[in-house]
């Protein structure tokens, strides 16, 4: 599938990595090894420490303790040479608003000491790839959010990086743009670029990631393949019923092997045998319910809890 093999050393290797802001531990003693090749996900609720972790990988933030190797080099000491081989799509676009689309790519290439003439045709290919070729001479302020994000991705590729780091690449974008970005990222992955992304969208992680960790409050809670985590942590099916817990209990008292969870007005029934429940529910007219396969979101919520994370 791609040029890397199992024997490749990890592209990122973090040992007991911590980041402290004053008294606050934003990243708390994490151990992480990201394999070379494929797509690795960093999932977690708001404030989990995903961006802080990525910033350390890029030398934009220096760890308070622990050791970090990226592309086999020591961070933050070898920041310059590491950044030469990495592409970055930041959580908030920081395109250069003083320039047009094509100028953004040219100027960014100059920061890598790349000569624009040498990569002119490659830059044209990048514009085609992110479907911005008709926007070459448009100013950044005239681009939509989706166009800006696509340009950020093209910009991150000007130095043909070995590792592409994406911090919430599709947050706030419409479904068409998300699908376009997903398919481009899949192509990159297949051509041998290692992807490292953070996301809140479980669908995104399930579609793209070969391996992921779930973070919360600065710690890594779990690691695994999306499907494996789903089968390990939740039952195969989820039935969401809009009713009270008492009502659900009495409706389904004959059915065994159900795990219930109440969230707001909805009872979540986790089960490996959905048909029995459905049979019961179908007898109740006027009840609203939904049957779906369990997904990563269920794993995520069962691991990180359902309360608002930034409320504390």
């Amino acid at each position: 599938m791609n040029s890397s093999s199992v024997s490749d050393p990890p592209i990122v290797l973090a040992k007991n990595l911590s980041k402290r802001f004053g008294d606050f531990l934003a990243v708390d003693d994490i151990n992480l090894s990201v394999p070379t090749g494929g797509c690795f996900g960093l999932l977690g609720p708001n404030g989990a420490g995903k961006t802080t972790t990525l910033r350390m990988f890029l030398g934009q933030s220096h760890q308070s303790s622990g050791s970090l190797h990226v592309l086999g080099q020591v961070m933050p000491e070898q920041t310059r040479s590491v950044r030469r081989k990495i592409g970055v799509v930041p959580q908030l676009d920081n395109l250069d608003v003083d320039f047009t689309v094509i100028e953004n790519l040219k100027v960014y290439a100059s920061f890598f000491a790349l000569n624009f003439r040498d990569i002119e045709s490659y830059i044209d290919e990048l514009l085609v790839m992110v479907e911005l070729e008709d926007k070459r001479n448009t100013r950044i302020s005239e681009l939509s959010g989706g166009m800006k994000r696509r340009l950020s991705i093209a910009r991150a590729l000007v130095n043909k990086p070995k590792l592409l780091v994406l911090d919430e690449p599709t947050t706030g974008l419409d479904p068409q743009v998300r699908h376009l970005i997903w398919s481009r990222l899949r192509e990159l992955k297949n051509s041998g670029t290692t992807l490292l992304l953070t996301t809140h969208y479980m669908e995104e992680a399930e579609r793209l990631c070969d391996d992921l960790v779930i973070m919360d409050k600065g710690k890594i809670l779990k690691r695994g393949h999306p499907k494996q985590l789903i089968s390990e942590y939740v039952e195969s099916d989820v039935i969401e019923i809009h009713c009270s817990m008492e009502m659900a209990n009495s409706l389904l008292k004959q059915v065994s092997d159900i795990r219930y969870e109440l969230v707001d007005e909805t009872v979540y029934c986790f089960t490996n045998e959905p048909l029995k429940i459905i049979k019961e529910l179908e007898t109740q007219a006027g009840l609203t319910w939904l049957h779906r396969p369990a997904n990563l979101e269920d794993v995520f919520l069962s691991l990180t809890g359902r309360e608002l994370h930034e409320a504390q």
Partner: peptide, 14 residues
């Protein structure tokens, strides 16, 4: 406001 340096700090510039 423009975060131009933030963008530069993703490249070999320090």
């Amino acid at each position: 406001p423009q975060q131009t340096y933030e963008g530069m700090l993703a490249t070999p510039l320090e």
